[in-house]
């Protein structure tokens, strides 16, 4: 699979402040790519570089194999975190205007808008002014405007903020559907549960540097600690714990269980396998619960950021 977007060694300074330091990312075609990082890490600057809003001091960006240029504007749909619409303009006029700025003809824009408005059941908003709509309603229109020109690359910065759970779900499904139709999505967010849910690939930016990038699943493999969460049933829990403690490194675990179990996290040494642990435990107790601890995106995020 080739990459739709490649960012090579992009740096950007604002005066003395280094916003991006030699950042490179690869976004595979058809993937949902999570761009993560703490506040002020440089995500927005990177997104603006990709959108040609900010010119990088050095480095290049390739979209679909070509160095980024003005003709790429129509290939990108961008929903910024700081978003709004003209307050006193009517919904329809406004959407038409924004679509035309992306290079659609008026007739085509109208036709597509009608399709999307019907699809999201917001057709009767056409003649309303933005100031008459709620924030969530305005967000829906912004979403439509972002995807209307069928861009190859969609960039969403915190797309779910401001949506109620029902609408957030609706938008999530639309994003997934757009991906199925061939779009590539860059997704910048702080909400790790949506990263878990949606992203195939992630990159983590911290203090202007990219410190992590790859398939989410590979990164999780890389970050797993060979730890297992077990629930054990035994008559003498203290004795059991001590005998395990003699052989493996053990810590208390906390998970929900129906039994009054001894709950432990057991970390194995590098040369030990799950099989070794199971056969050992089988000799001493009844195993009710046995699961490998997979690091969550949240854990990875916190751990990487704190280590840097």
């Amino acid at each position: 699979m080739s990459n739709l977007l490649e960012v090579h060694g992009v740096s950007k300074n604002f005066g003395d402040f280094k916003a991006l330091n030699n950042v490179s990312i690869q976004v595979p075609k058809g993937s949902i790519f999570g761009l993560l990082g703490p506040n002020g890490a440089g995500k927005t600057t990177l997104i603006r570089v990709i959108n040609q809003i900010t010119m990088p001091d050095s480095g290049t960006v390739f979209l679909d194999g070509n160095s980024l240029n003005a003709s790429h504007i129509k290939d990108i749909g961008y929903l910024p975190e700081e978003r709004g619409l003209y307050k006193s303009m009517k919904v329809g006029e406004q959407a038409l205007y924004l679509a035309q700025l992306k290079g659609l003809s008026k007739a085509e824009a109208k036709q597509r808008l009608k399709y999307w408005f019907d699809r999201l059941e917001i057709g009767d908003w056409w003649n309303k002014k933005i100031q008459e709509l709620s924030k969530g309603m305005a967000q829906k229109i912004q979403f439509v405007v972002t995807v209307l020109h069928n861009p190859k690359l969609l960039i969403f910065d915190e797309p779910f903020s401001g949506f109620d759970p029902i609408n957030a779900n609706l938008i999530k499904d639309e994003i997934l559907r757009l991906r199925e139709d061939g779009a590539t999505v860059i997704f910048s967010t702080h909400r790790m549960e949506s990263v878990e849910e949606l992203c195939d690939d992630i990159a983590l930016i911290h203090k202007s540097n990219k410190i992590l990038e790859g398939k989410l699943i590979d990164i999780k493999r890389q970050y797993k600690t060979n730890t297992f969460e077990v629930g054990l049933e035994a008559e003498n829990k203290t004795a059991l714990k001590e005998s395990i403690n003699g052989k493996f490194s053990v810590s208390e675990a906390n998970f929900k269980s129906l039994n009054n179990d001894l709950k432990l996290n057991i970390k194995l040494a590098e040369n030990e396998t799950a099989q070794d642990l199971i056969s050992f435990l089988n000799q001493h107790a009844y195993i009710n619960h046995f699961v490998e601890v997979i690091p969550s995106a949240n854990d990875i995020f916190i751990q990487t950021v704190q280590n840097n």
Partner: peptide, 16 residues
């Protein structure tokens, strides 16, 4: 200023 306060500006300048 209106474009700034209504925060539409970033959407617009990603196009022009």
């Amino acid at each position: 200023i209106e474009e700034k306060t209504s925060r539409i500006i970033e959407v617009i300048i990603s196009s022009v």
